[in-house]
Design a protein around this nucleic acid. Structure first.
Length: 771
DNA sequence: AGGCCGTACTG
DNA sequence: CAGTACG
DNA sequence: GCCT
């Protein structure tokens, strides 16, 4: 089968001047496009709608009934979260463009799993139809653009690096005389190398005396620093070297790949290479991250001492590579991922720590061992994050001009990348704890504690943390000021929790993400009942009849309703009050309550159920196919693989089979964060620093684990650029293919043959972010 | 009694 | 185009 | 299965 390279085969999706919003996903915060605000006739800018569903005041009064019904239905189905982030669905002229979705699945569950390969999947999202919107409403809010721009520009490299660069071009750092004086024993002009040696010697001396510097968060890092100043060590260089030493790092004066663990430089490629004695960046060993100074700063003030340190002492020998990484692992926790601070986009891989951390150094062989046809067609960019953006490939693939419709953007903008790729500017040493120390008033009054998990605060904190805060604030305001156009007729169908639900001041509305303090809260009061009903529902899913189909439908509704039922159900009558619970289900509930069991389960659990369920787990195999195959004699995945009964698989099913385990498992939250971090870094560093990329879906909703990674990509249009010319598909493709090998493989395995290019959300404006 | 999602892909 | 699967 |  031919798997065309998405970049070369551009699907003629005309995305110009359109903004396609994803609509709802089950359980997701997204708003069905059909109920999204779509009027605002005056041309107000789209903005984030939080809190109540769909800011009903903005609804078109046209079909209130329909809308209401829809809302109710959706709510019933649990498809609307109590907070809504609109992904504005805006399009022009053509309202029937395919709604495109991008999801990334990645799963690694048990280390025992033989298939650690990850699945990255792009699938079509379920969507409701998009509506045509008044064009004026898609103008990017000026403020948004401004703030975004500011964000990009403000915290860019300061003049220092400019001077360093100048120095790198042969001129001596002009300011170096000054600090000279400040130092008492003027060391004359000293080369960086000498200075480094000096410092190391001093350090050794002090250590011999048993003095240790404070907060040695750089301990174990053997850093080769290159300030770009060749001749004499500039004050900056010396300062930084001092800093490294002071924080426990080891300065390696002469580059020795066997010893160095990190190269830190903001200098130009040329100067660095000269100092390293290498010919090209690619000659830097892969295991040595080459990062900017900001990386060093990134660890400052982070959870020092919080995490128990390994009191190892014997691990400081000159082992290199894996061992060092392993040993340092616990201390790496305090640092940003190197790739976030890569000095050169060509070396975006910037060292293996990210992969090491997730135990993903090597690509596991897939048992089914199917080929990845696409790899053939794409020999260049398939070796992991770095490789895809490496060397020659870079020039061909990575330039912004290929992703945007005009060529105005200057390459220089790339230098902003490291800023946009982080939630907060790396230049400023920061402590997550500090941020946490001063929750704003709204948060507190809502009883929320921003107990960011380790992983999150380390990797990219909550990518939308600031945004959450804002949303909370708005919600808060809304709660205390009902004059806000928060609804009106709209009665918040979502919030229509049982009246009695509001007694203990529980925050009915609120981000799921906020429920961090008590993750176990997922265990609701009627969990036992829910478990049984779910079990029964699963069984019915494996039954062929239409009847069962609708039963499943109903159980689903009932279960969802039950989940949000605040009190323990005690009686048949009480059960009946729950929306979606009828006589039959109520009866079942009572049986469970009384006997702890549900006989119907055993009754329905016929022999075929197990096998059918397994078969249905194959992506692309539903009830009908499963039964068909079952009838043909298939019982297991092996049977399917062996094509027992002469069954045939679609290509999607083949990949579904191939990645069965991955698709059917979820990844821990932090893994999602890691993958997203990579994507984000690539986007900013290598595609377009102005891209706004955020993680959505379950991750954003604060789930402990994720079945996929939903990503929102937008870009401000304040510079007149558009996504014309299929830039987004190409961009997406680039992002995905820049992931490490196993993700890449899986991505192709499951996506390309499913017409990737027709499944991409395209956002044009930069609406709702960073107000 | 009749509806209970909307959409995209497959063949 | 209908059937099928998906989320 | 439930709901209207």
């Amino acid at each position: 089968m031919e798997y065309t390279h998405p970049v070369s085969e551009q699907n003629p999706v005309d995305v110009d001047a359109r903004l396609l919003g994803r609509s709802y996903r089950p359980g997701g915060p997204e708003v069905p496009s059909s109920v999204q605000g779509r009027s605002n006739q005056g041309g107000d800018n789209f903005h984030l709608a939080t809190g109540n569903i769909g800011a009903p005041g903005k609804m078109v009064a046209n079909e209130p009934k329909e809308r209401k019904h829809l809302e109710a239905t959706l709510h019933e189905k649990g498809r609307l979260a109590s907070h809504i982030v609109t992904s504005p669905t805006i399009m022009e002229k053509n309202d029937s463009l395919p709604n495109l979705g991008m999801k990334i699945l990645s799963h690694a569950r048990n280390a025992s799993s033989s298939r650690r390969g990850k699945v990255i999947k792009l699938t079509g999202e379920d969507t409701t139809r998009a509506r045509v919107l008044d064009t004026s409403s898609i103008t990017t809010p000026a403020s948004t653009a401004d703030s975004k721009t500011r964000f990009s520009r403000s915290s860019i490299r300061d003049n220092k690096s400019a001077s360093a660069r100048a120095a790198g071009q042969g001129k001596a750092e002009p300011s170096l005389l000054k600090p000279e004086k400040s130092k008492k024993k003027v060391k004359e002009l000293i080369t960086p190398l000498e200075y480094a040696k000096l410092l190391q010697a001093k350090l050794a001396e002090r250590e011999a005396q048993g003095k240790r510097s404070t907060k040695p968060y750089l301990r174990g890092k053997k850093i080769f620093y290159c300030g770009g100043d060749m001749q004499y060590a500039s004050s900056e260089t010396r300062g930084r070297m001092d800093y490294i030493i002071r924080h426990g790092g080891t300065l390696v004066p002469v580059f020795d790949p066997a010893e160095v663990t990190h190269i830190v430089t903001d200098a130009h490629e040329k100067s660095l290479l000269r100092v390293l004695g290498l010919r090209k960046l690619g000659d830097i060993p892969e295991h040595i991250p080459t990062v900017k100074w900001s990386w060093v700063l990134s660890g400052f003030g982070r959870r020092n001492g919080v995490r128990p340190r390994q009191p190892k002492s014997a691990d400081r020998s000159d082992e290199k590579g894996t061992t060092v990484w392993q040993d340092d692992e616990s201390e790496d926790e305090v640092m940003d991922y190197e790739l976030m601070h890569a000095s050169f986009k060509e070396r975006l891989d910037a060292g293996p720590s990210l992969w090491r951390k997730t135990d993903r150094g090597k690509h596991k062989e897939n048992p089914l061992n199917l080929d990845h046809p696409t790899n053939r067609g794409n020999p260049s960019g398939s070796r992991g994050l770095g490789a895809a953006v490496n060397g020659d490939a870079t020039s061909k693939l990575s330039r912004i001009s290929e992703f945007t419709s005009d060529k105005l953007i200057s390459r220089d903008s790339v230098v902003y990348a490291d800023n946009t790729s982080l939630p907060s500017t790396p230049q400023i040493p920061r402590s997550p704890l500090d941020e946490k120390a001063k929750p704003n008033r709204q948060e507190r009054s809502l009883g929320h504690v921003d107990g960011g998990e380790d992983v999150d605060s380390r990797i990219c904190s909550d990518p939308l943390a600031e945004f959450y805060a804002q949303a909370r604030a708005e919600r808060y305001a809304e709660l205390h000021d009902h004059s806000v156009d928060s609804d009106s007729d709209g009665e918040d169908s979502i919030q229509k929790a049982p009246p009695r639900a509001s007694h203990k001041g529980e925050q009915k509305r609120g981000f799921l993400c906020d429920a961090k303090g008590a993750p176990e809260r997922i265990q609701c009061i009627n969990q036992d009942v829910i478990d049984k009903l779910e079990e029964l529902m699963e069984i019915h899913k494996a039954k062929p009849s239409e009847e069962d189909h609708w039963r499943v439908f109903s159980y689903g509704k009932a279960i969802r309703a039950l989940r949000s039922h605040p009190t323990r159900i005690r009686s048949f009558e009480e059960a009946r009050t729950v929306r979606g619970v009828g006589d039959k289900t109520a009866r079942k509930i009572m049986e469970i309550l009384e006997t702890g069991d549900l006989r119907r389960i055993a009754y329905e659990r016929t022999d075929d159920v197990g096998a059918i369920s397994i078969l249905q787990g194959i992506y692309g195999v539903g009830r009908n196919i499963a039964h068909k195959w079952y009838a043909n004699g298939c019982r297991t995945l092996d049977d399917v693989q062996a094509r027992i009964g002469g069954i045939t698989l679609t290509s999607a099913q083949e990949t579904g089979l191939k990645y069965y385990d991955d698709i059917n498992s979820r990844m821990p939250r932090n893994e999602a964060a890691e993958i997203f971090t990579m994507i984000k870094a690539v986007a900013a560093l290598d595609i377009d620093p102005k891209l706004f990329i955020e993680i959505m879906g379950s991750y954003r909703r604060g789930k402990a684990d994720c079945g996929d990674i939903d990503i929102l990509i937008t870009r401000p249009t304040d510079d007149g650029k558009t996504h014309h010319g299929n830039s987004v598909p190409a961009c997406l493709h680039y992002l995905l293919t820049s992931l490490p090998q196993e993700y890449y493989d899986a991505f192709y395995g499951s996506c390309v043959d499913k017409a990737l290019l027709q499944k991409i959300y395209v956002f044009r404006t930069h609406s709702m972010i960073l107000k």
